[in-house]
Nucleic acid binder design. Structure first.
Length: 700
DNA sequence: GAGCACTGC
């Protein structure tokens, strides 16, 4: 700790913070900013009038940094130094320095918008630009105006982003603190390779043959490529002449790897052995592998992005930003001087790479964030005027408002409703919050809680697929409930109910090939949601996992209806002649049910006429993931509401007609929906559906 | 009949 670079800047930092409400700190890796900034300000008396809060984008970081600071100060974790993450608050009245995830700080600001308990707020790793960090940046800008006399805000960022953040905060000062990285030599390719997989392979072998010992970290885009490269590397390394170079261990590293496989990268290699770690961007920030001296950077990353005009997510391979490229290179210089092989030319890096990664706020659906901001009730709150460091597009805000209106969170004038206020309390996406509220009305809350919790953890439930476990998976899946044909939500419900009946037996999870960690997470989320719902209802609700059934409910009717109301913006109608679907959103899309779905066709091979879906994502083609059958007479009232939507009113009406107002929603070009081969007039489709509905009614 | 990067309340 004694020789951390940041400590030489203590005087300068304190002086600048004393004189300015906001300071940007450029702290390179190894500068000690995360552990030292809070201690410096603590020493200088900033904890006399309140606590110092330090946000981290990740839970593990909040915990581990808090632990280290407590150790350095010689106090017990949870006393003077503590942390708060979801499900775990280790702070007390004595806490002066509090580390917390940015999501937790946002929740705190919901019940205390002035965040009055804090004298200092440090937004650490702000350059990662998580959705939560971006909202916090906007809130901080307001807060420093309101609390100019008694609040200090520090924002740590990357070199390339510092100016921009400073401009955002009225040109506040920027302090740079050097890091403790060893020099990393950057080597560029002459051109983009046709196959970055082959180029990575070749570069890795070159290093292995020519370079002295030291581990190699290779950045790939996804699991498939990682597995391919691992097996190719294994083949080629084995065919090298024995004794001609070091032994080699090749390790994959990605998020869907079970935790016990992930931690393999933390055990040191045997002597005379070089490790090749083939990783996704998980190794960029989340996990730090020691011993890396060489980095191979493909220059690509797989990124999830949201298209507000279609309501569709897609997972695309995109070029990384300069910040990301430098972060990757830095991974080679942690223990000694290293080398970074960039599989792209320097001119591409200089002229074509974005400085900073496109922030999440410009790549996500904003329904949750907009609802959150609306619920804050800030006096001058107008979502279109909220100051974002990088404002999302008007189209994206418009999409969020329409979604919120359809699920009754805001009224036709864009004002938050009483339903919306309750929804904002729940740590869920708005559609799931709405589902819980509806379920509570129709007596199936105990089921909806389970579905919401299972969907929140869905990606953690199944172990990563791989060729070797594939057959096993298929086999064990037969043992799991099948949703009784109604769909994936029902299957998720049944899985949890069955686990509940075993009294949460860990062995049961293992027998059914479900990740124990994921199922325990579901249990935690469910408990948290139950508590919040109890608090809101101010009474005792039936929240037992295997709650009481009413007569004649074996078709999960109430639950499916609650889902239909909650996901009013995520419904789809089957095509007449085949099992494709068309979404019933504002911009209809032709889509398929994902093949992994348990939704069952009827005797004629037809899938249900209407379904609710949890996610619309384009991978190889557009898919509905997690679908559930709903009934036409639940859908009709929703379609009528869609028809009546007036975006101008939703976005605040009169405000938009003011001349010179930026981001006028009314100025947006009205885009035509055009799906190849499908005549698509929304009006007439709604009319046609209504006609069919009436015809069927008449038949009865 | 396809397969999803990474976080978080």
């Amino acid at each position: 700790m004694a020789n951390l670079p940041i400590l030489q800047f203590e005087e300068q930092i304190v002086e600048t913070v004393d004189r300015n409400p906001v300071v940007v700190i450029i702290g390179e890796t190894g500068s000690g900013k995360s552990t030292q900034l809070s201690q410096i300000l603590h020493r200088r008396g900033y904890t006399k009038s309140g606590i110092i809060g330090v946000t981290q984008p990740r839970r593990v970081a909040a915990v581990s940094v808090a632990r280290r600071v407590a150790q350095e100060l010689g106090v017990h974790l949870g006393d003077e130094v503590g942390y708060a993450i979801r499900f775990e608050d280790r702070t007390s009245e004595r806490t002066h320095i509090k580390y917390l995830t940015d999501g937790v700080l946002l929740r705190e600001s919901l019940s205390n918008p002035e965040l009055s308990q804090y004298s200092v707020i440090i937004l650490d790793e702000a350059h990662e630009r998580s959705l939560n960090t971006d909202i916090l940046l906007g809130l901080m800008k307001r807060l420093v105006r309101m609390r100019a006399s008694n609040l200090k805000v520090l924002i740590t960022s990357a070199t390339l982003d510092g100016e921009k953040v400073s401009n955002f905060f009225s040109n506040c000062p920027i302090l740079s603190v050097p890091g403790k990285l060893y020099p990393v030599e950057i080597l560029y390719s002459n051109e983009r390779p046709t196959s970055y997989l082959e180029a990575s392979l070749k570069t890795a072998l070159d290093i292995h043959i020519r370079e002295p010992e030291g581990d190699v970290l290779i950045f790939m885009t996804g699991q498939d490529d990682i597995e391919k490269l691992v097996s190719k590397l294994e083949d080629r390394v084995q065919s090298l002449e024995e004794g001609s170079c070091l032994d080699a261990i090749i390790l994959p590293l990605h998020g869907s790897l079970p935790p016990e496989m992930q931690v393999r990268v933390f055990s040191p290699p045997p002597p005379n052995c070089r490790r090749f770690i083939v990783a996704t961007n998980i190794a960029e920030t989340s996990l730090t592998v020691d011993g890396v001296v060489y980095v191979i950077d493909s220059g690509y990353v797989k990124q999830r992005q949201y298209n507000p005009s279609t309501g569709m997510y897609s997972l695309d391979v995109v070029q990384i930003s300069k910040v990301q490229a430098n972060q990757r290179a830095g991974r080679a210089g942690r223990t000694r001087p290293g080398k970074c092989y960039r599989l792209y030319p320097s001119i591409l890096y200089n002229d074509d790479f974005l400085d900073v990664t496109v922030p999440e706020i410009q790549r996500s659906s904003l329904a949750g964030s907009v609802l959150y901001l609306k619920s804050l009730d800030l006096s001058d709150m107008d979502i279109l005027k909220f100051e974002f460091l990088d404002p999302p597009s008007s189209e994206s805000l418009e999409d969020a408002l329409k979604q919120l209106y359809l699920i009754d969170a805001i009224d036709e004038n864009g004002m938050i409703t009483s339903i919306g206020r309750v929804m904002a309390e729940l740590p869920l996406e708005p559609s799931l919050s709405r589902t819980l509220m509806e379920a509570n009305e129709c007596g199936c809350l105990f089921q909806a809680l389970t579905v919401a919790a299972m969907l929140s953890a869905e990606t953690m439930l199944l172990p990563g697929r791989s060729k070797s476990t594939e057959k096993k998976r298929k086999h064990t899946h037969l043992d799991l409930p099948d949703g009784s044909g109604w769909g994936d939500h029902i299957q998720l419900l049944q899985i949890f109910e069955e686990w509940d009946r075993t009294n949460y037996d860990i062995g049961w999870c293992k027998d059914h090939n479900l990740q124990v960690r994921g199922m325990l997470f579901v249990k935690d989320v469910r408990k948290q949601l139950s508590q919040i719902m109890q608090k809101i209802a101010k009474g005792s609700l039936d929240v037992r996992a295997n709650g009481r059934w009413k007569e004649g409910e074996q078709d999960y009717r109430n639950l499916r209806k609650a889902l239909c109301i909650g996901f009013a913006n995520q419904l789809a109608e089957r095509m007449v002649h085949h099992n494709g679907y068309r979404t019933l959103g504002f911009k209809p899309q032709v889509v398929q049910v994902h093949p992994s779905s348990v939704l069952k066709p009827d005797d004629e091979g037809k899938l249900p006429e209407y379904v609710v879906y949890h996610e619309l994502i384009a991978t190889s083609r557009p898919y509905l993931r997690n679908v559930c059958a709903v009934e036409i007479h639940w859908v009709m009232p929703i379609l009528n509401k869609v028809k009546k939507i007036n975006v101008n009113k939703l976005s605040g009406g009169t405000d938009l007609t003011v001349e010179g107002t930026e981001g006028k929603l009314s100025d947006l070009p009205k885009k035509e929906v055009n799906i190849a081969g499908v005549p698509d007039d929304h009006e007439s489709r709604i009319q046609a559906a209504r006609d069919r509905f009436l015809a069927r009614k008449a038949k009865k």
